[in-house]
Design a protein around this nucleic acid. Structure first.
Length: 420
RNA sequence: GUGAAUGUAGCUCAGCUGGUGGUAGCACUUGGUUGUGGUCCAAGAAGUCGUGGGUUCGAGUCCCAUCAUUCACCCCA
């Protein structure tokens, strides 16, 4: 019986995990600069939460959720629903009129895995609740762009406005009329979509549909006065902050809750999984979930996809080395070194030693691989003479050190490591 | 859920029209240096050739099934 990880579930091993740590460190730094606070959320929620937030008719809810049917609970397929549930449950709108929150963690969707798409994947999710200001929208995108920029990634930003419950029905009607005229020319999926979710036809990848849809009415032309004002404000803000973007009238969202601003960070380097980050405004959602009437906007970054891009850059991540390797020869020395290494670690140093009784040569090799700055060699001869040899691995300089009682020895070594 | 490709050492891969599993690279262990790393050299260890059937004197190689992986569709971050 050979047990392997589940299809679509991955181990992140040493060597790759450093990239994840760097990604998270950069992200946390930038989120802090923009005054966002972390919130940690459970992975399991009532199934109903996702059905109501994401939309009963979406693919995610219809066929991709990991649900314990008997318990009516589901492993979260995205973060926004859980975050809003917590926001409402704890009355966060009362504590602050505008809440800026982020969360980082695994999400679960039962899809067929492929490049940049796993069944357990990780997102960094950022949300602002309580503001309708178009500057917030612009700021969110600027923050995303800054994050990607500081990671050294070149990703483009696409922007659209989906309108609101006031203007979208009108657009829908004219879109439906347009699609009806060309029903025959559409692919089978789009024939179905015309009935269920006509907006989706706009971003069908089938070339035939794309051609048909080129002349389709544009959402941007059907916005009501308020939405048009808002959309103008967003673009003005982006311009002021120097964020590069392009308008894409065909971009719609797969989740039902989006209104007005939607955007995607897109790369051409990941095959079919072009979106490394996406989000938008969801002004009615909090209320729809039983909370106060509070507007919101958020976006999520796909961490696997960002890590793939970082790997493609092939920047070598310097593995942070250790301070000291204690090399001992013989049982007596090894016993002495065992205690000394522990004392050094207690005082805050990164220390390694070999516990397998290997040759000095082998121990030196290990020290080299671990990136040890120094090696303390404790041989039988040295021990007998009450001494040890300290070697600087970079300069190859060595110097003798008189062995002392452990506490003093630690002090001496800390000083010597700086000077040698 | 649909389609295609691929499964040989821990990893990356050779292995032609069936004839004893590789002086292959990386990684690992040991040695060259009786006690000194990164380079170099040598040796060593490591495999039910995904699994199960079939064809054949003989299958890693051909056929069937099955499982897994990958890419794409779909969907999405």
């Amino acid at each position: 019986m050979n047990i392997k990880a589940l299809n679509g579930f991955k181990d992140i091993l040493p060597g790759e995990v450093e990239l994840w740590q760097r990604l998270e460190a950069v992200a946390r730094d930038i989120f802090a600069r923009f005054n966002f606070f972390e919130i940690r959320l459970p992975i399991l929620e009532k199934t109903d939460l996702f059905a109501r937030a994401i939309g009963e008719a979406t693919d995610i809810v219809e066929k991709e959720m990991y649900t314990f049917v008997d318990k009516q609970v589901t492993m979260r397929p995205e973060a926004t629903a859980s975050l809003l549930r917590a926001y409402i449950e704890h009355g966060l709108h009362v504590q602050k009129p505008v809440q800026r929150l982020f969360t980082i963690g695994p999400m679960f969707r039962h899809e067929r895995p492929q490049k940049g798409r796993l069944r357990q994947f990780h997102q960094m999710d950022v949300e602002v609740l309580g503001s309708v200001s178009p500057r917030v929208d612009a700021e969110m995108m600027a923050m995303g762009a800054m994050l990607l920029g500081e990671l050294g990634l070149f990703v483009s930003l696409e922007l659209n406005s989906l309108g609101c419950p006031v203007c979208r029905p009108g657009f829908r009607t004219s879109l439906l009329a347009f699609l009806d005229d060309r029903h025959r020319a559409l692919c089978d999926d789009c024939k179905r979509r015309s009935a269920t979710n006509p907006l989706r036809v706009l971003d069908c990848k089938n070339p035939k549909c794309r051609e048909q849809v080129l002349e389709a009415p544009s959402l941007q032309d059907h916005l009501c006065a308020d939405c048009a004002d808002h959309f103008r404000g967003v673009q003005e803000g982006l311009g002021q902050l120097g964020v590069q973007y392009s308008l894409n009238k065909f971009m719609v969202r797969g989740l039902d809750y989006y209104t007005r601003t939607t955007f995607e960070f897109i790369t051409s380097d990941l095959g079919a999984q072009a979106a490394v980050g996406a989000g938008g405004r969801y002004d009615g959602l909090v209320e729809q979930l039983g909370g106060p009437s509070v507007p919101g906007i958020g976006f999520a970054l796909g961490m696997e996809r960002l890590v793939l891009l970082l790997q493609q850059k092939e920047d070598k991540i310097a593995v942070s080395g250790i301070d000291l390797f204690v090399a001992a020869i013989g049982e007596q020395s090894s016993r002495h070194a065992f205690g000394l290494a522990h004392a050094l670690r207690t005082s805050g140093m990164r220390v390694a030693m070999d516990l397998e009784g290997r040759s000095l040569k082998s121990q030196m090799k290990q020290a080299g691989k671990l990136g040890a700055a120094h090696v303390l060699i404790l041989g039988e001869d040295e021990l007998a003479a009450g001494k040890a040899v300290l070697r600087n691995m970079a300069t190859k300089q060595q110097q003798e050190i008189v062995l002392q009682e452990e506490g003093k020895m630690v002090q001496t070594l800390i000083l010597q490591l700086k000077s040698l």
